[in-house]
């Protein structure tokens, strides 16, 4: 059932894409089909496919692969943690945000708090030195510290 709901949501998204796409028009047209046709063609193909996934007979449908116990909560926290990491990347700077994110992410993979604090600090600092200093890939030190 879940897969049908997801497919239906995607179908709506596809229709939205088609609706937005149908408005595009070139001011000066020097080619027959313009910027609108290709997105509409894609939307048509996608809509047919998603519709099939919504309506297909039960015999060929398969459900979402189950999550292990507590999997949903774990995955949700991890997703939030990754967004936080992305949002604090420039603000707290690479070494600090990476250390914090490493501690949170590492908890899901069986690290102990003590080990994670050391590993997090080590990952943050060593990758910063490796990329920023050795490999010349500029990384932020944190706008919050005026960096």
């Amino acid at each position: 059932m879940v897969d049908r709901i997801v497919a239906a949501a995607w179908l709506l998204l596809t229709l939205g894409y088609a609706y937005v796409g149908s408005a595009y028009e070139a001011k000066f047209s020097y080619e027959p089909i313009g910027p609108r046709a290709f997105p509409l063609l894609l939307a048509a193909i996608a809509a047919v496919c998603w519709l099939w996934l919504v309506l297909r007979p039960k015999s060929v449908a398969e459900d979402l692969k189950g999550l292990p116990p507590g999997g949903f909560t774990k995955a949700s926290i991890m997703i939030v943690a990754m967004f936080c990491y992305a949002l604090t990347f420039e603000w707290l700077g690479f070494p600090l945000s990476t250390a914090l994110a490493s501690i949170v992410l590492g908890r899901f993979f069986g690290g102990s708090w003590g080990g994670l604090v050391i590993a997090g600090a080590a990952i943050g600092v060593s990758l910063y030195l490796l990329f920023d200093r050795v490999l010349d890939v500029t990384l932020p030190l944190g706008t919050v510290f005026g960096g």
């Binding site: 992305a86 990347f89 994110a101 501690i103 590492g106 899901f108 690290g111 080990g115 990952i123 990758l127």
Partner: peptide
């Protein structure tokens, strides 16, 4: 628990 955070950090970089 060391590998995964390191991969995420390098991906971000």
């Amino acid at each position: 628990w060391i590998l995964v955070p390191a991969i995420v950090a390098i991906s971000m970089v």
